[in-house]
Design a protein around this nucleic acid. Structure first.
Ligand SMILES: [Mn+2]
Ligand SMILES: [Mn+2]
Ligand SMILES: [Zn+2]
Ligand SMILES: [Zn+2]
Lengths: 150, 150
DNA sequence: CATCTAATTGATAATGATTATTTATAGAAA
DNA sequence: TTTCTATAAATAATCATTATCAATTAGATG
């Protein structure tokens, strides 16, 4: 994982570059996201923030997450059955390992790209039941510029 | 892809084995799902069904999908930003290729497991921007039987 | 420091996909 | 026919997320 302090400073730099304000609520969120322990959901971030800033609104959490997503300073794991979770420590797409019972989410570390499941299983002790591999991109039709989404 | 007729018959067999009834609405759904053209959403299945059975309720679609999921006769692609989509032709986990502009979902065919993105891109003409690879399983703690989910 | 103003916040309403509930229906069994 | 049970239809409820808008404030300016 990246050094949380460096991630924090990096994100603050990007925010300032874009002319965004650094409010206390945002700073508190950045501290949490720079570590992203356990890949928190919006609700979990909200609960942590409220410890220090009891009047914070959940809407602020969502708006800040949206802002950070747009500048690629947080990565969103969108999986319907567990809701969205966030990783501000590795703010780019990467594989995840989800426990289907308790919902715990890990970043599995793996080198090549073969026998992955076994390797992850060995590393983490998880018993892997299934996986989801999704590729995103633009279909040929959508690559033509100036075309509205259907 | 599997032969839709065979998939239809297979699912009907499983339903009967479990003592479930084969209603006209269900049969209409099975016909759609056995092909699963375009990986339809619940809403899209609903619209197709209504052509033949105008009084059908959306709740029935969801209930039947839930039934079929439980007997592994349909695979659900749960990705938050596009909502759930269904594949009854290949009713088991497999990779998907999603256009982030129009939402089209394909089953990319690929052999080994290296240089996948390039191969998929060549086969489909998609310009791949990112991917999501998620492994599901049970963490060591959850593998201990009789433990409640957190 | 005081003032100014656009960005941001907090409170709340709205949205939308999915699930739950309740009553009605229909076919199988007796 | 009567009874029984699975299922359907209609509708309400849920819940995560987004939108709205008046109030507040960070940060620039003088
Ligand atoms: Mn991660
Ligand atoms: Mn598929
Ligand atoms: Zn677990
Ligand atoms: Zn497209």
């Amino acid at each position: 994982m990246a050094d949380p302090q460096e991630r924090l400073e990096q994100t603050i730099r990007v925010l300032k570059d874009k002319g965004c304000r650094l409010t206390p609520q945002r700073l508190a969120m950045l501290r949490i996201l720079s570590k992203s322990e356990g890949h928190p959901s919006a609700e979990q971030i909200y609960e942590q923030i409220r410890a220090d800033y009891p009047t914070t609104s959940l809407a602020t959490i969502y708006k800040t997450l949206s802002l950070l997503k747009n500048m690629n300073e947080v990565f969103e794991i969108t999986f319907a059955s567990v809701g969205s979770h966030y990783d501000g420590n590795k703010p780019y797409p990467h594989p995840h390992l989800i426990c289907t019972k308790c919902g715990q989410i890990l970043d599995p570390e793996f080198g090549p790209l073969a026998g992955i499941s076994q390797e992850i299983s060995r590393q983490t002790g998880y018993k892997i039941t299934h996986q989801q591999l999704i590729f995103f991109g633009l279909c040929p039709k959508c690559q033509k510029a100036g075309q509205a989404p259907e």
